[in-house]
Write a protein that binds this DNA or RNA. Structure first.
Lengths: 122, 122
DNA sequence: ATACTGATTAGAGTAAACTCTAAGTCAAGA
DNA sequence: TCTTGACTTAGAGTTTACTCTAATCAGTAT
């Protein structure tokens, strides 16, 4: 079990942010008798996943929604499966958009390089 | 030449946002005698590109930087090229991350489906 | 003439996601 | 015993990117 400080160092998130995530119901660590937070290995795993989602700029509300899925009981399995599938759709869509932009950027870059090459000869 | 309202409809950006972008030096349309904004075809092209960059969550400051290089003219070509290349790197990175998440989601989805199949038999 | 539409400005307000502050408790080491 | 450092809370402040308001003006429709 990790303290908030340990998790903070391990994952490079400030303790402020970890408490903020708790307030926002994104993670709910256990507590010691005197009230200190204790994060288990699976809490850390979950946070790593959250960080991945954040890297793609997924809004916190969506991550929240996702998190609430896991806190719900077994009888919501179908609902959870649907939500996962929706998320996957969204992710695949985003990949599509990014690949188009990658292509656009490539074209612009090539145009610039061509322009510079021509300049060299003049 | 387009009025602000026409551009707003054409590109699905509010007139508020268009004026905001002007204040932030992202675009500088011409003006009529009485002071109304007039956007040319190339202004619209530039805005379309800005929208694409936004889709990849490029921060406004970076778009600003790019725009200002454009206004400074020819001797900034190298700088602009570098900026584009950096952004392309960033986009490709995002694609990578998203594909990892897509994979993770697929695994989770398959696990759920397996679980549901087993339930059907019991 | 009057109302409607669409434009102008400066500046205030909002939402998201932190980020920090104040004021404190508690346990361990010099 | 003192100090250091880790932890606690509620709540205030910050940044980004809008988003809206108020007050005004010009041109057109009824």
């Amino acid at each position: 079990m990790y303290t908030i400080g340990e998790v903070s160092k391990l994952l490079n998130i400030s303790t402020h942010t970890l408490r903020f995530y708790e307030k926002e119901k994104i993670i709910t660590p256990e507590r010691t008798v005197r009230g200190d937070r204790r994060y288990s290995e699976s809490h850390v795993q979950w946070l790593r996943f959250v960080i991945k989602l954040k890297e793609t700029k997924m809004p916190l509300v969506q991550i929240q929604e996702y998190a609430s899925l896991f806190l719900q009981g077994d009888e919501t399995t179908h609902k959870r499966l649907n939500l996962l599938k929706n998320h996957q759709d969204h992710v695949q869509n985003q990949i599509q958009v990014l690949m188009e932009i990658d292509d656009l950027l490539l074209k612009k870059i090539l145009a610039y390089e061509e322009y510079l090459r021509k300049q060299d000869f003049s």
